[in-house]
Measured scan of single mutants.
Amino acid sequence: AVSDRLIGRKSVVMEAISPQNSGLVKVDGETWRATSGTVLDVGEEVSVKAIEGVKLVVEKLE
């Protein structure tokens, strides 16, 4: 599936994300709604860990 190619990809937070609120990330020039178990600020680099419905699950790059 097209979405499977996103797992493991680097992306950049475009709208802040917290455990309570989804935000936005940009992956390969496309904007996606995303969630995370931690707070992520605009501009942080993250990695796509999973896809749940139409949202990406991301975490901060170490």
Rank of each mutant, 00 (worst) to 15 (best):
A1S: 13
A1T: 12
A1N: 12
A1E: 11
A1W: 13
A1M: 12
V2Q: 11
V2S: 12
V2P: 15
V2A: 13
V2I: 13
V2H: 12
S3E: 09
S3W: 12
S3L: 14
D4V: 12
D4G: 11
D4A: 14
D4I: 13
D4N: 14
D4P: 09
D4C: 15
R5N: 08
R5Y: 10
R5T: 09
L6I: 07
L6P: 00
L6W: 07
I7A: 03
I7W: 04
I7G: 01
I7L: 10
I7T: 05
G8H: 04
G8I: 04
G8E: 02
R9F: 08
R9E: 05
R9I: 06
R9N: 05
K10V: 13
K10W: 10
K10N: 08
K10T: 12
K10A: 07
K10L: 14
S11I: 08
S11D: 03
S11N: 03
V12S: 04
V12M: 09
V12T: 09
V12Q: 06
V13A: 02
V13H: 01
M14S: 06
M14L: 14
M14A: 07
M14F: 10
E15C: 13
E15Q: 13
A16H: 08
A16Y: 09
A16R: 15
A16L: 09
I17D: 02
I17R: 01
S18K: 06
S18C: 08
S18H: 07
S18W: 07
S18F: 07
S18L: 05
P19N: 04
P19D: 04
P19M: 05
Q20R: 10
Q20P: 15
N21D: 08
N21Q: 14
N21H: 14
S22M: 13
S22L: 11
S22I: 12
S22V: 13
S22D: 15
G23N: 01
G23H: 01
G23K: 01
L24G: 03
L24D: 01
L24V: 10
L24P: 00
L24K: 10
L24F: 10
V25N: 02
V25T: 03
V25S: 02
K26Y: 14
K26W: 14
K26H: 09
V27Y: 04
D28G: 08
D28P: 01
D28T: 02
D28H: 05
E30F: 10
E30A: 08
E30T: 08
E30R: 09
T31A: 07
T31Q: 08
T31R: 07
W32V: 00
W32R: 00
W32C: 03
R33G: 10
R33A: 14
R33P: 14
A34R: 00
A34C: 07
A34W: 04
A34D: 01
A34M: 00
T35I: 14
T35S: 09
T35K: 08
S36M: 02
S36P: 00
S36K: 00
S36R: 00
S36E: 03
G37P: 10
G37L: 13
G37H: 14
G37E: 14
T38G: 09
T38M: 13
T38E: 14
T38F: 11
T38I: 09
T38N: 10
T38S: 14
V39H: 13
V39I: 12
V39Q: 11
L40Y: 06
L40F: 09
L40I: 11
L40E: 02
L40K: 00
L40P: 00
L40V: 07
L40G: 02
D41M: 13
D41C: 14
D41E: 14
D41F: 13
D41G: 12
V42R: 06
V42C: 10
G43T: 02
G43Y: 04
G43N: 05
G43E: 04
G43A: 03
G43H: 04
G43W: 04
E44V: 10
E44A: 09
E44R: 04
E44F: 06
E44K: 05
E44T: 12
E44D: 10
E44C: 09
E44Q: 09
E45T: 13
E45C: 15
E45I: 15
E45L: 14
V46P: 02
V46D: 01
S47Y: 15
V48K: 00
V48L: 02
K49V: 15
K49P: 00
K49G: 03
K49Q: 08
K49L: 13
K49Y: 08
K49E: 06
A50L: 06
A50C: 09
A50D: 06
A50K: 08
I51Y: 07
I51R: 07
I51T: 05
E52Q: 11
E52K: 09
E52Y: 10
V54E: 15
V54P: 09
V54I: 12
V54N: 15
K55P: 00
L56N: 00
L56I: 04
L56P: 00
L56T: 01
L56V: 06
V57F: 09
V57P: 00
V57S: 05
V57T: 05
V57W: 09
V58S: 01
V58I: 03
V58Q: 01
V58M: 02
V58N: 02
V58L: 03
E59G: 08
K60S: 07
K60V: 06
K60C: 04
K60A: 08
K60P: 11
L61V: 10
E62V: 13
E62A: 12
E62Q: 12
E62S: 12
